[in-house]
Amino acid sequence: MGVDLSVAIGGRTLENLVGVASGTYGYGSEYEEHLDLTGIGALYTKAVTMHPRPGNDVPRIVETPAGLLNSIGLANVGRERFVEEKLPGFAALPCAVIANVAADFPEEYAEVTAYLEAHDPNGALWGYEINVSCPNVKAGGVALGAVPRQVELTARLVREATDRPIIVKLTPNVTDIAEIGRAAEAGGADAVSCINTVVGMIIDVEARRPVLPAGTGGLSGPAILPIGVAATYRVSRAVSIPVIGMGGIMSAQDAIQYLLAGASAVQVGTANFVDPRIAPGIRDGIVAYAQRHNLASVSDFHSLLG
C-alpha cells in the first residue's frame, strides 16, 4: 500500500513531512557538498536576523545527560549576506527551504521577512519559520514568545509581509503553550512548530560557575522528547492549523510519537549532529510503520491515540 507522507501548510504542500531543524543543518551547503539531501522534506535554515550577529562567548555548547545545552547566540550573517550568499544555493537543493527568521521585536520580524520576500522573486524560499523565542528588547527582554498578544501581533505583521506559509516556532518556556499556539493561529500563522529548546543550566562545581558563559542555554536532544510530545499533544488540540513536532527525535519511533500526539510533520535537530543521514531513515521508518498499520497518510495517525 502506498503511504502519502505529504503535508499541506498554508496552501502549499511539503512532499515529505520529515524536516531538519533550524541551526542544525546550516544553509544546506555545509552538508550538501557530501551528502544527498533528497530524503529530507524541508530544510529549516539557520536563523536569519536584521543584522549580522557574531554569536555568544565560548564555549557555546555542552553535552548533558542525553542532551545538548547550547547558547550559540543566533550567530548568522544577517539578512543582506543571507540573500547574497545563501539564497542562490537554495534552488539547487532537492528539498523545500524554509527561512527561520529571528528578531528583537514584532515589527522587525516583518521587516526581515519583507526583505527576504523582495529579494527572492524566483521563490527559492518555500516559506518562513518565525522564531519567537528571542528576548524582546523593547519589552524589557522577556521572551516575545511567552506573551500571547506579542505572538499574535508578530504573526499578523509577518502575514502582511508575505503570502507564503508562515510557521510560528513556539517556545516551551511558558506557562501555557496551547494559549501561545492559539495566539499564533489568531494572528494568521499557517502552522506552528513546537518545541524550541528548553531553558537549562549546567554548573561546573569546581569552577563554581555555569559552564556556558551566558549562564543558561537551550536544551535539546533525547532528554526533551517527552516535553515536546506533551506540548505537541496539547497544542494540536488547541489549534486547527498543522503542528510540526520536534524535540529529541532520534528515530522513526520518536517521530511516530509526535505524529500520534497530533503533529502533521516533524523536525529532526540534534540527531543530525550524531548522524547527518538520519532524516531519510526516519522517513523510511514512518512509511514502514504506516504500512504495517494500514495508515494511508499522516491524518490517519491523529485518530489512533488511545
Partner: peptide, 12 residues
C-alpha cells in the same frame, strides 16, 4: 573547542 556538527553548520 567543544564541537557540535563538525562541518560548519551549527556555529558552536
Amino acid at each position: 573547542q567543544t564541537m557540535g556538527c563538525g562541518v560548519g553548520a551549527c556555529m558552536a
